[in-house]
Design a protein around this nucleic acid. Structure first.
Lengths: 348, 348
DNA sequence: TTGAAAGCGATACCAC
DNA sequence: GTGGTATCGCTTTCAA
């Protein structure tokens, strides 16, 4: 009469444990563990194995990851950290990355979870929250802040690999670097080469995008500095039609002959507003976006865009798996993005 | 000389434990626990508390979530389950939801993690993977499969709340239901009311979207059945320009006077291709999308779209928090979406 | 071929 | 005020 599920203080049945499986199968917990982890070859008879599996299935037994982690000293978790501010901005590029990354790592026996770190916290607070889960690896994505002391904290907490993906290298961490400045520089070089000299640069007012937009602006500035007579004007824009209309309404006063619009979505927004305000594109003002979205090819004129080439999710997954296997590898840069211009009709 | 960090088999330093903090502060582990969990009021002297905190800071101590979970019997994890197939399709609507949901729940002391379940697995396999983490709650998003037996498995594993968000109700689970059929029905009703009778329905060939597109198609069919002379033609479309061009090239042979395009992105793609093929929109063919994206307002003609109203991330978070607090609440439907037409220029 | 038992890290009851 | 210690579920070594 001890075989019925125990009842907890709140009346809910306690989940079955490996001990319950063992009792039901009439074997010891050790045997259950061997069978359920495939370590049973030559140790446990086939008949016993069958009994154990049947008992586990009957009870709906699911192993307790926390207990396993505690005992084995390492978890199979790979934490993909994304600042909450950045999440709304990620878009289809990130979604594709995530799907690939997750699939590749789960094939290698890891469990990928995405942790959207709440806004308004220091990098160290965020790192502490990650460290509590004792993941095998932490991968920070693009705009997610990561400081050297966070890296140290994670490392001391036993995280074997810390990787900054698409962000500047951080001391102590591995990285797949992406130079956002290059994005701006490539766009600016193109515009300057085609004779434009007064460059507007759209910077989103949306939170969390500054980490991208500021280096991009700096890249434009750097490129422009080499051209006598070139000037750069930062332009704030919110991701709303009203904001775009407002900016377009005073466009001629700005005297710009080109604009680099942070990304394709902002570019599309501005392009539409400019056209509605009677500004001819690219005749009067050239427009360049970034990310090379499919949708940006649908507008007329088709949008010139800066495409970034980064190691994809599968490659990142392979890298992470290797860093977990070989924790000794010295931190360093494992791949660099390149920015590449896709010239279409919106810049002449 | 026992105070230096212990060295594991692979040479990496073992992370500091509460026992290490206790040794360094010259107190017992119990005291450390009390101090670090705010249970010290009236139990531990201020001087001792200060010593403990200092020791913890020195060592860079971070509590071990797995150990805490094991001991306390419940984790603070809230698992947001998303099928990997669906991830690439989620778009900005989901990103906004995630940011809100995560922020609201972390303020309530929960840790939200998104689990992108690998493709090609049964709902039960996926549920087992979720159950291993013993989360306090599991929330499945929109296209993520959830079967009644999965729910049972999760419940037996001690998950106190299972919520299907934006999906049909599942026996045993709570739900915030969204009737995808209604989306199609609303679009079709509008088109039929404005005199259209031959309705194309774009269904994406991309994996993982069938769970949305099929009910939407069924909704269109149901609405059309009420109109004598109305017919419905499903049209497969991939999310590429080539596919859209191909579809547009044989458009006139289809004899359609309207098309409902699954969502705004597919609608924009098709709209462009139709225009390039010389089909006048909305004159010859009306186009309706769904999701009411900002970008869809930028094309000309502006896109008519079906907007869905669902409880936002903050409301969902509040619901989940309540279900965790009160696990006894009978499973049921906690909110229903409504689909609402936003008429613009692409349908006349 | 199987079982007994130690121990991973944190918590909370109970004794001092 | 503070410390000893049993306990959560699981893995793995050693002994039978």
């Amino acid at each position: 009469m001890k075989d019925n599920p125990k009842v907890g203080p709140r009346g809910g049945a306690t989940p079955p444990t490996s001990a319950a499986v063992a009792r039901r199968a009439g074997v010891s917990r050790a045997t259950v563990s061997y069978v359920l982890n495939g370590q049973a070859a030559g140790r446990v008879s086939d008949a016993t194995q069958a009994k154990v599996r049947a008992a586990a299935a009957d009870l709906g037994y699911v192993p307790h990851a926390a207990a396993r982690t505690l005992r084995s000293g390492h978890s199979d978790l790979v934490l993909l950290a994304v600042a909450a501010d950045v999440v709304p901005a990620v878009g289809p590029l990130f979604a594709a990355f995530l799907a690939e990354f997750q699939t590749a790592l789960s094939e290698r026996g890891h469990t990928v979870v995405l942790h959207g770190t709440g806004g308004g916290r220091t990098p160290e607070d965020a790192a502490r929250a990650w460290a509590e889960l004792r993941p095998a690896a932490v991968v920070t994505v693009a705009g997610t802040p990561l400081s050297a002391s966070s890296v140290q904290l994670l490392t001391r907490a036993g995280v074997s690999a810390v990787l900054a993906y698409g962000a500047p290298a951080v001391p102590g961490a591995h990285s797949v670097a992406m130079d956002q400045g290059e994005v701006g520089a490539v766009a600016a070089a193109h515009l300057l080469a085609s004779g434009r000299r007064a460059l507007g640069v759209v910077t989103p007012v949306e939170r969390g995008l500054h980490l991208f937009s500021e280096p991009r602006l700096a890249g434009v500035r750097a490129a422009a500095a080499a051209f006598p007579g070139a000037r750069v004007v930062p332009l704030e824009l919110a991701y709303t039609e009203e904001s775009a209309v407002e900016l377009a309404s005073c466009w001629r006063q700005l005297g710009l002959d080109a604009v680099f619009a942070y990304n394709d979505e902002y570019a599309m927004l501005l392009l539409r507003a400019l056209q509605d305000a009677g500004i001819e594109v690219p005749g009067e003002t050239a427009v360049v976006g970034a990310d090379d979205l499919l949708l940006a090819r649908l507008v007329r004129p088709r949008l010139t865009s800066v495409r970034m080439r980064m190691p994809g999710g599968a490659q990142a997954a392979e890298l992470v798996a290797r860093l977990i296997r070989e924790p000794g590898v010295a931190a360093g840069v494992h791949g660099v993005s390149s920015a590449q211009l896709v010239v279409r009709e919106s810049s002449g």
